[in-house]
Design a protein around this nucleic acid. Structure first.
Length: 465
RNA sequence: GUGGGUGUAGCUCAGUUGGCAGAGCGCUAGGUUGUGGUCCUGGAUGUCGAGGGUUCAAGCCCCUUCACUCACCCCA
């Protein structure tokens, strides 16, 4: 029948989850979800497919990472979301609160979203094309308390997962944009000042990987052509940037020194004030200050950020990159309404974090199956009795499997139960049927008990207590 | 887009100086009376990624091409 065998391949960057992976990851997701709900974030779900224009907006430069979808029935191009934030902005724009009907979204609003997002990148280790993102956002307030709550929820989520060593790094786009005012950047033939500013942030963001020297060199590089966005800073400006990036001391000290550098640059001063407020709030929330790091180099890639930006890294595994990231994006909703709506939020990369935690040995993937009990079918012509046992156990909430093996020898079924990772087996052969008993064996403790057939469910109900 | 690596059975991979295409797992047929990850006997399975070249002879050497993968870039 089969003309041609289809290889059991899947595209790179897309993962399968076998039960043991799925169950371990599910545990992790539930842990994070619990923390987020604890902070009052309500769950929502948006579709796996949106209009391309919704996701890409007017800019086409982010478009290269978006999976586009062709369909015979839609004229408007469709695409798959690359994060949960843009769909959230659409949702906010489409569901304003109506005070008469009392329907719609009452601001400020805290919500979380869990689900896969898609990026048409080239896959690599720790970098997938479909990955689960856990997203928490607060819309409708400019208060830095909201940003501090996002920091706090990240902190608690990582703590809850058992991560010991991590840092939440904070910066503010306003300071970086202030830096662009402090140094001398001019429009060029085919490149705007904005483009150069973005390029400068991109270079600063690399400092962890390539070091201050290399960053300075890149900032000074001479543009190769009319479209090259190299900032080409002067020696004077480089001196300013390096002192800015080399600020030392605790978070408050760094902010104070930063303030003196940016004296008179209003935008940057605003940014510094915001960070100071966030630190005060997180202090009140009891987050130890050594988990928070003011780091003026971090910029975050997404270009919709307008204020504080943040990312979390595992200090034991810096090579895994940021595991959690976010920031304030006050004008994303304006894409859909024309009006600004302040919002802030962060996303956790579940699959990357899972890989990292696995690496750290914090993932328990011992559980192979949800089956608690397997009923062996050893005696011939007793299927009705075995089925009855299974029904009784299922009724009281015990996950029960009845052997489906064709080979009904004891040994074969016994080995099957062990390799499946089932915890209990029920052994009931001719002998037991005659005596009206059953044998229950705990495969973990290797203990076996014989009890009357009608005590089957009692064994497990008393076990639970 | 740039640079490394790898393509052989469903899976993981051996394959020597060029000389009949291999193993383990899995699958499959049968046997093995009930306690720890079975055992015994038999069987099926290939466009050696694709195309071209050198040679009496190519999985192996040469050229082209494709796919996958890792790193850079960027990001979760």
């Amino acid at each position: 029948m089969t003309d041609k065998i289809v290889k059991p391949e899947r595209p790179g960057g897309f993962l399968d989850f076998l039960p043991w992976d799925y169950l371990a990851r599910e545990k992790m997701i539930k842990t994070v979800e619990k923390v987020f709900r604890n902070f009052g974030f309500d769950p929502i779900e948006t579709p796996r497919i949106e209009f391309l224009k919704t996701l890409a907006g007017e800019t086409s430069d982010t478009g290269k990472n978006i999976f586009k979808i062709k369909s015979a029935h839609d004229n408007e191009p469709l695409a798959m979301p690359f994060d949960h934030t843009v769909p959230l902005a659409r949702l906010l724009a489409a569901n304003p609160y109506d005070s008469k009907t009392r329907k719609g979204i009452r601001l400020p609003w805290k919500r979380m979203a869990v689900g896969p997002v898609f990026r048409a990148d080239t896959p690599q280790s720790g970098r997938y094309r479909q990955f689960y993102q856990f997203d928490a956002d607060i819309a409708g307030t400019s208060s830095m308390l909201a940003d501090a709550e996002i920091v706090a929820v990240i902190y608690q989520a990582l703590k809850g997962l058992g991560v010991k060593h991590f840092k939440i790094r904070l910066n503010n786009r306003k300071i970086l944009n202030g830096l662009a005012q402090l140094v001398n950047i001019n429009n060029r033939a085919s490149v705007t000042k904005d483009d150069i500013t973005k390029e400068m942030m991109r270079i600063l963001d690399k400092i962890d990987k390539i070091g201050l020297q290399a960053v300075a060199a890149e900032l000074q590089a001479v543009p190769q052509n009319a479209y090259d966005m190299s900032p080409q800073l002067s020696d004077d400006d480089i001196a300013k940037v390096t002192t800015f990036l080399s600020l030392k001391g605790d978070n408050k000290a760094k902010l104070e020194q930063c303030r003196s550098i940016f004296q008179g640059v209003k935008l940057a001063e605003e940014g510094i004030d915001e960070l100071r407020q966030i630190l005060e709030y997180t202090d009140s929330m009891g987050i130890p200050s050594d988990f928070i790091d003011i780091d003026f180099s971090i910029a975050r890639g997404l270009d919709y950020y307008t204020g504080p930006v943040m990312e979390a890294v595992l200090t034991d595994l810096p090579e895994f990159g940021s595991i959690f990231s976010g920031g304030r994006y006050n004008n994303l909703v304006a894409r859909f309404t024309g009006n600004e709506l302040p919002a802030t939020g962060a996303s956790l990369g579940v699959d990357r974090l899972f890989a990292a935690l696995n690496h750290l040995g914090l993932i328990d993937n011992a559980q192979q199956t949800v089956t608690d009990v397997m009923i062996m079918r050893i005696a011939q012509d007793h299927d009705a009795d075995y089925i009855q046992m299974a029904s009784e156990l299922r009724q009281i909430g015990i996950n029960t499997d009845i052997s489906l093996l064709k080979d009904t020898t004891f040994k074969n079924q016994f080995n099957y139960a062990i390799t499946r990772g089932v915890k209990f087996i029920i052994i009931c052969g001719e002998n037991e049927f005659e005596k009206k008993t059953i044998q229950i064996k705990n495969l973990e403790t290797r203990k076996q008990e014989e009890l009357p057939r009608d005590k089957l469910t009692d064994y497990f109900t008393s076990e639970q207590e």
